[in-house]
């Protein structure tokens, strides 16, 4: 619990749940990728809470849900890689998520206003 009486970490964890899935599906909507490639693309977005230890179970869950599919590909430079791509259901999902996200962000921006997050006195 922070000094302002809010469990900010718990609140961030709630925000991360859907965002991580949306981020991975969005990256895969651009091109087929494998685990480390996804992690590299997500570097700088640590707030999403995706790490080496969470990306693969997340990919597994998306596969179980039918949003993505996987195939193994031999690599000339190292071990074989497991590449992931969106299924038709995943393409539909990422499109719906994008629309919902834009609507959600616009509404929240309108409510919170542009000054939220600014330091006091800044």
């Amino acid at each position: 619990m922070g000094e302002d009486g809010i469990d900010i970490e718990g609140w961030k964890a709630q925000l991360r749940k859907g965002a991580a899935e949306f981020a991975v599906l969005s990256l895969l909507s651009r091109k087929e990728m494998y685990g480390i490639e996804l992690l590299d693309a997500l570097s700088g977005a640590e707030g999403l809470g995706i790490s080496d230890g969470t990306i693969y179970p997340l990919l597994k869950r998306l596969q179980t849900d039918g949003r993505i599919q996987a195939r193994w590909e031999p690599s000339v430079t190292g071990p074989p890689r497991k590449y992931y791509s969106l299924t038709q259901s995943g393409q539909n999902a990422v499109r719906s998520m994008g629309l919902a996200w834009n609507e959600f962000r616009d509404q929240l921006d309108r409510l919170a206003g542009p000054d939220h997050g600014a330091r006091p006195g800044a």
């Binding site: 230890g53 597994k60 869950r61 849900d65």
Partner: peptide
């Protein structure tokens, strides 16, 4: 985490 993942997620909007 893999065990949880294999059970799928909370149902999303079912298109």
């Amino acid at each position: 985490a893999y065990g949880d993942a294999s059970q799928g997620s909370v149902p999303q909007p079912v298109l």
